[in-house]
Design a binder for these strands. Structure first.
Length: 670
DNA sequence: TCCTTTCGTATTTTT
DNA sequence: TACGAAAGGA
């Protein structure tokens, strides 16, 4: 407790009612949450299994678990819930699945699955507007986030497109039910609706969760907020931590106004402000403060630190994006040698993913190791989807979506014609496609050959399913992957041997993760079965875990969005131009405030130095465009900025200097 | 079924 | 310009 400042202490000690902690960037909010959990357990005598801490990402929840584990030793922390919103929702649905009418082992549809399902539904109804699939998917998701059901969506529809989307929404939900599946949004929506409708169930959960802590509160959407409100009830055992200035996810349904709403919903709300920053120099913070002052505020806050004033912020103007990338590469090489530090101390942040390409190229040329955040997530890789498809069907034979993915993979000579007939037969009989495979009525519609193929497949799968619940399930699954000779299939479908090897490594990693997940679940609950583990696995992004093992002295490349929550000694914020940051679409739609927060997030990632770069000309859609410096540059304190290449003349000199430094450094290294 | 060509489009992304 | 998706041909 002695390591906390007075504000932080106040936030930890206040347990008499609902509390809002407005935690500025780098103000030690994770410390506050973890210490508060320790305080609740050790001093307030609240049992760990009555406390839940909720985050948005797996990464955040993993970090929090780790830090609580260090503070609260031994069995006292047993039963503590630290999880993502979605994982909490999943747990609630699992526990209440009977009441909700789900069979155990229900599937979770990710965005891709949902997209495929919507497309399929529209094709089945002979709807022409297949180009609207993405729009409709997005609309359905926002409706779900706003707790609007298909009926109300239809009533509220403003135009024919929305009407169509509402109709698709209804059949989409029916299909999910038929498949014994839920989508990501349902993981929050379904428990929330259940709580609204069944006060007895709500009370049960309120008795279980007596104190709730929520991280990154500004990122909650309407259904998440309602879930929190219902769970907390009148008891008021609630601490939320958030920062309205770091709200950068409004475009995907986050409601930063939920922060202000708390005041209305909990009149006794206490507000604590954390303004001391432990990360950045005061020059960086001054710039951040001055920038964000241009946004309207519900809560005024000003960050300060005792880290010294530090270097001025550099602003480097380059001729074009090529020069920008080169300049940064040279700068990193030069600084690393001069400051005797590591590649991992540097981060390059940008607005759009495409901006990383040129940078990557120049880093490669200069042999600077780098790590790209984001990219395709582990679960969207084809090989992972394939095996997950098998696992899904194994634990939930009703999942037609997964069934269709794997039925002909590897080739089983079951073509589209057969599948179409099977599908319509299954729909007619109101059974899943897998179930339909074994039915006798198929003789009427299918050739003997096609039927034999289907039989063969369904028998085999049924056998695997049974063995899964009798013997060591992981061994059974490994055998299954050998049975289908997935390895041969992979090698056949890859361009290079290396690619195939990587894919098989991913498959191996998937199975290992499944095993670890199962073991972890069985520690808490010896009855846990393979279906628990598979469902759980769907919510974990293993890419993060995987990357941690690799050697990590690399320059970090990241979008501004993905950089939230992280920090680096030296940050380059590139592309400080109008139309890029703020992005042109945001300017048009008047969302500049969120773009400003995005810039704010970027600036506050930096600990020691911050370098802002821009170009005079940039290629846009193949055309060379004269750029305008970002308005955000004008909003920074001029006296703390050091410009390079602002006048056209000295920029040439700059470049020459950069080249010279670079080549002399190269010689030096040889 | 695979490969080529053409066409359209062009933030941010977690679960 | 540069990519991915969809369509068309072998």
């Amino acid at each position: 407790m002695s390591t906390l400042n007075p504000r932080q202490k106040e936030a930890v000690l206040y347990v008499d009612g609902p509390l809002l902690v407005l935690a500025g960037a780098g103000s030690g909010k994770t410390s506050v949450i973890t210490r508060k959990i320790a305080y609740l357990i050790e001093t307030c005598g609240i049992k760990a299994h009555h406390i839940a801490a909720v985050t948005f990402t797996n990464k955040a929840s993993r970090e929090m678990k780790e830090r609580v584990g260090k503070l609260v030793k031994g069995p006292a922390s047993r039963g503590l819930t630290v999880s993502t919103f979605h994982n909490l929702g999943l747990n609630i649905i699992r526990r209440e699945h009977k009441l909700l009418g789900f069979k155990p082992g229900f599937s979770i549809f990710d965005a891709q699955d949902a997209n495929a399902l919507i497309k399929g539904l529209m094709q089945k109804d002979n709807l022409e507007e297949t180009d609207l699939v993405d729009t409709i998917q997005h609309l359905i998701s926002s409706w779900k986030n706003d707790l609007i059901g298909p009926d109300r969506a239809y009533q509220q529809a403003q135009n024919p497109n929305e009407e169509l989307a509402a109709r698709v929404y209804a059949s989409y939900n029916r299909s999910l039910r038929a498949y014994n599946a839920v989508d990501f949004d349902d993981l929050i929506l379904i428990p929330t609706l259940l709580f609204q409708q069944r006060s007895d169930v709500l009370e049960r959960w309120q008795r279980k969760i007596r104190y709730l802590l929520v991280d990154e509160y500004q990122d909650t959407n309407t259904s998440q907020y309602l879930m929190v409100k219902l769970l907390v009830g009148i008891r008021g055992g609630l601490t939320v931590v958030g920062d309205d200035d770091q709200s950068i996810y409004a475009w995907r349904g986050a409601r930063p106004e939920n922060l202000a709403l708390l005041k209305t919903d909990f009149p006794s709300l206490k507000v604590v402000m954390l303004e001391q920053n432990y990360r950045s120099t005061s020059r960086i913070l001054k710039a951040a403060n001055q920038l964000i002052m241009n946004n309207p505020h519900e809560f005024e806050k000003t960050l300060w630190s005792e880290m010294g004033s530090g270097d001025p912020l550099r602003v480097i103007v380059n001729r074009n994006e090529d020069a920008e990338a080169e300049r940064i590469a040279a700068d990193i090489i030069e600084r690393r040698l001069r400051l005797q530090n590591h590649y991992r101390d540097y981060a390059i942040l940008y607005r759009g993913n495409h901006q990383s390409r040129l940078i990557e190229m120049k880093l490669q040329v200069n042999q600077i190791p780098y790590k790209l955040s984001g990219g395709t997530s582990f679960f969207s890789r084809a090989e992972v989807k394939d095996i997950m498809g098998y696992l899904k069907v194994l634990i939930n034979p009703d999942d037609d979506n997964a069934f269709l993915r794997i039925i002909n993979l590897p080739r089983r000579e079951i073509g589209p014609g057969t599948l179409e007939k099977l599908a319509s037969y299954a729909t007619e009989r109101k059974v899943s496609m897998f179930e339909a495979c074994g039915e006798l009525g198929l003789t009427q519609v299918l050739s003997a050959r096609a039927q034999a193929k289907l039989h063969e497949f369904s028998h085999w799968l049924k056998a695997v399913h049974q063995r899964c619940y009798q013997n060591d399930p992981i061994e059974v699954i490994k055998q299954m992957i050998r049975d289908i000779d997935y390895e041969a299939w992979t090698y056949q479908n890859c361009n290079s041997e290396l690619q195939a090897e990587r894919r098989m490594a991913n498959v191996g990693f998937l199975v290992d993760s499944l095993q670890r997940t199962l073991e972890r679940l069985q520690e808490d609950n010896p009855d846990a079965e393979i279906d628990d583990a598979v469902t759980r696995l769907l919510l974990i992004d293993m890419l993060e875990q995987q990357e941690e093992d690799e050697d990590d002295d690399r320059v970090q490349l990241s979008t501004l969005h993905a950089s939230k929550g992280l920090e680096y000694p030296h940050v380059y914020l590139i592309g400080m131009e109008e139309e890029l940051l703020p992005h042109r679409n945001s300017i048009e739609d008047d969302f500049v405030e969120e773009e400003r927060r995005l810039a704010y997030v970027g600036i506050t990632r930096a600990r020691k130095t911050l370098t802002l770069t821009l170009t005079r000309q940039r290629k846009q859609y193949g055309e060379l465009i004269d750029t305008v410096p970002s308005r955000f540059l004008d909003e920074l304190p001029e006296e703390d900025l050091e410009w390079f290449g602002r006048d056209p003349g000295c920029e040439v000199e700059n470049k020459a200097q950069g080249r010279a430094t670079l080549s002399s450094l190269r010689d030096l290294l040889k």
